[in-house]
């Protein structure tokens, strides 16, 4: 029983959510193939071929696949599913966009954002913003699973699988990609970063957010995140949002500054290994999940923290 993993990438580089999804896949079957669907993505396929435990890498290329058009990805994947019992897709915004299409076409349930593989048909997934964990068993012949990458360790490099080029399938005649504006950042990717520094509504303005959060993040080599309140207020861009409705992160260290800790924010970061909270309100719910809480105005605490980090040789 072979399983297929669909790689997460930007046509240039492979994202480590792919390696994490491979770990989940290897818990279901020892025959794991990876599909790289993109355009000009040979380097991505070569990187995928190096993941330990991967049997082979399939590379499908077209403009629509490179643009991530959901209908095109579905058309590419569905014909392959005759050879697989399950397909695992990293639960990124891109993966979530096309994965239910594959399930609908195969007439099977999608099991969303699994965090644990119990056996080849049984999985654990968070529901109600992570306030409950549901264990479900699927009776469908084929399984379509999206994987919450932060719940799995990345499979290491060390393999040398063959890369096989396959047909891209039909495009999507009724959907046209116009353009996209991606923010280029020298910082690590939010969902893959070892350290995340997030700011909340207490920042009060976009300028203050940049002045306070970004230098601290840069000093720590961290990605920058934000609470929904900060994003809604326009202090930080949409894709900084950590939470139930934004990104789910689980770094080694999560630093929450001026964030009260609404349920929906906690849902996005409570699996972090260590949590630091800086907030002047001692009763803020964020302190209940923090390993190290510092009750202080961020205006005082962050400069002191910068100094203390410098003194510690960082």
């Amino acid at each position: 029983m072979a399983v297929l993993v669909i790689a997460d990438h930007d046509n240039a580089s492979l994202k480590d959510s792919t390696q994490k999804t491979v770990t989940a896949a290897l818990q279901i079957s020892s025959d794991v193939d990876i599909l790289v669907a993109g355009q000009g993505a040979k380097a991505v396929a070569d990187a995928a071929a190096k993941i330990t435990g991967v049997r082979k890498v399939l590379l499908a290329e077209s403009d629509a696949l490179g643009q991530g058009v959901a209908e095109a990805v579905e058309a590419c994947v569905v014909p392959l599913m005759g050879g697989y019992d399950a397909v695992l897709i990293p639960a990124t915004s891109q993966g979530k966009n096309f994965s239910p299409r594959i399930a609908a076409r195969l007439d099977v349930a999608q099991i969303s954002e699994i965090v644990e593989v119990v056996d080849a048909a049984t999985f654990v997934r968070p529901i109600y913003a992570g306030n409950a964990m549901e264990t479900v068993q699927s009776a469908d012949a084929k399984k379509v699973l999206t994987v919450r990458a932060t719940a799995f360790k990345a499979a290491a490099d060390g393999g040398s699988a063959a890369v096989e080029t396959i047909g891209a399938g039909d495009g999507a005649a009724k959907t046209r990609f116009l353009d996209q504006k991606l923010v280029k950042s020298a910082r690590p990717d939010l969902t893959a970063a070892r350290i995340v520094v997030s700011g909340g509504r207490a920042m009060g303005s976009a300028e203050e957010f940049q002045r306070v959060i970004e230098p601290l993040a840069d000093k720590l080599g961290a990605a920058v995140g934000a609470s929904r309140a900060a994003v809604d207020a326009g202090y930080a861009p949409n894709d900084y949002q950590v939470g139930q409705t934004g990104k789910v992160v689980a770094p080694e260290l999560y630093v929450a500054i001026g964030i009260s800790g609404a349920i929906q924010h906690l849902a996005g970061m409570k699996d972090s290994k260590y949590i630091v909270a800086i907030n002047k309100d001692a009763d803020a719910p964020i302190f209940q999940v923090a390993d190290y809480g510092l009750v202080s105005d961020y205006k005082v605490a962050v400069p002191e923290l910068m100094d203390a980090l410098t003194a510690a040789g960082l």
Partner: peptide, 8 residues
């Protein structure tokens, strides 16, 4: 989308 906005 991850990293920004896309128009379709």
């Amino acid at each position: 989308v991850d990293g920004g906005l896309q128009n379709l």
